[in-house]
Nucleic acid binder design. Structure first.
Lengths: 231, 231
DNA sequence: CTTATAGTTTAGGTTCTCCTAACTAAACAA
DNA sequence: TTGTTTAGTTAGGAGAACCTAAACTATAAG
């Protein structure tokens, strides 16, 4: 069994591999380098070390994927990150545009004990302030049926569930216009040629571009009970 | 102006120098090495670097002291440590015997923003759960008049104010017998030959050794108002 | 089937922090 | 005063994580 205590860098690499390989199966060196703002040779070197520790399967030139051990380690870091984000918003009043940076540092320093106390204080939330699922301690990830806003039919009423946005300016904009998890919106028009979606929400009408509409995941108005994570 | 962001190691060294040089004026290489569990040559090397950065005055073979810059940096780390300890006890329900280790890691990761939110949530406490003073953001340290229990006269009634103990077992013992900041105790007898102090507190009589009695700082029963940090 | 390009690795180097071994300064005791 | 002990320093080196420059490989296009 490998050492349970991973370095900050190792944890960041595992998270990056997890996120980047979620769909396609493998992540590339260059993708990881871009995401972590390090050089490609640094990634190559780290991948070799991670492979030696049994955390990733690395086929040179073909890509890298997490082993079961690596996946569990990555999910634990992601759990820490998202519990911390939720705590900072719910209990210390930080804005959802501020917490990512904070959590990025704290996720490497918080012990299991403190983390579980935070989770307990929050009532063991399943989703963070952005609507991202919080992996459970055993590595299971809550799921629900969602569609991007860009795929919702005109006239439908839906609830915003998840906001796949990390940029601070974008998050502040979304909060200002009320496009946050839990918001109820109606699709007034889809304009594929213009690349816009026209919506009506509680505080008025808005037009969002296609790129953003792809990142706003929505669900039916009557979602599965017991999953409310925002007032 | 030097970089405001200091490494974890540098912060730990500054804290050590601060604590060790408080009384005598200077700290020695060996003291620092022992406290941080590193070798003496590691300390020598680090002291040279800290001196280059203007954080310490180091006279080779004679000792080391903090510069004003170094002192401020050390106080900031100590503020973070003690606010975090207080927060973990007050808001996350950790025991006062558990929080030192936790704070030791978190003090290097928490931002000013989060720290001030914690302090605000706690009502800007002046003392941590052990009764240690929490430096203010400007570096000023709250003070009050205290005497060690070993110097309190027989028959006097005093309040425990500060517990200069870090060992987990010792802290659990003290909590069990009620010797915590805020506890009201009466000195029944001082036995210099036996090296013991006999006291009566709310939950019964106890005998404590001289070494421990030196570390329990007490004040008059009617202390200056507005300094209560424990129920 | 060759070549361009994107992607990856090797080679060599830096910084930080730690180590052990060997040396030197200071303190003390005879 | 001198010799020994203790404390502190320098020398040399290791590992983690990063870098740039240069060489290499794979894939896909001409």
């Amino acid at each position: 069994m490998p050492d349970l205590t991973l370095s900050t860098s190792v944890e960041d690499y595992l998270k990056a591999v997890f996120v980047l390989s979620r769909e396609g199966g493998t992540a590339t060196t260059t993708e990881i380098a871009t995401r972590l703002a390090v050089s490609a040779p640094s990634v190559s070197g780290m991948l070799r070390r991670l492979a030696e520790q049994g955390l990733v399967d690395h086929v040179p030139y073909r890509g890298v994927a997490l082993t079961p051990d690596g996946r569990l380690a990555a999910l634990r870091v992601i759990r820490r990150h998202r519990v911390i984000e939720t705590y900072l918003v719910e209990r210390l009043g930080l804005g959802w545009d501020e917490v990512h940076v904070e959590a990025e540092r704290l996720e490497h320093a918080v012990s299991e004990l403190v983390l579980e106390r935070m989770a307990h204080a929050l009532g063991h939330p399943e989703f963070d302030p952005h609507g991202d699922p919080i992996p459970a301690a055993d590595g299971s990830v809550p799921s629900r049926v969602v569609r991007p806003l860009s795929a919702v039919a005109v006239g439908e009423q839906v609830l915003v569930q998840q906001v796949l946005v990390h940029d601070g300016d974008a998050l502040r904009y979304l909060a200002r216009v009320g496009l946050v998890p839990g918001a109820s919106i109606r699709i007034c028009a889809q304009e594929p040629v213009a690349g816009t979606v026209h919506i009506a929400c509680a505080d008025g009408d808005h037009v969002v571009g296609h790129a953003l509409a792809e990142r706003l995941l929505c669900a039916e108005v009557e979602p599965a009970p017991g999953a409310a994570n925002r007032g």
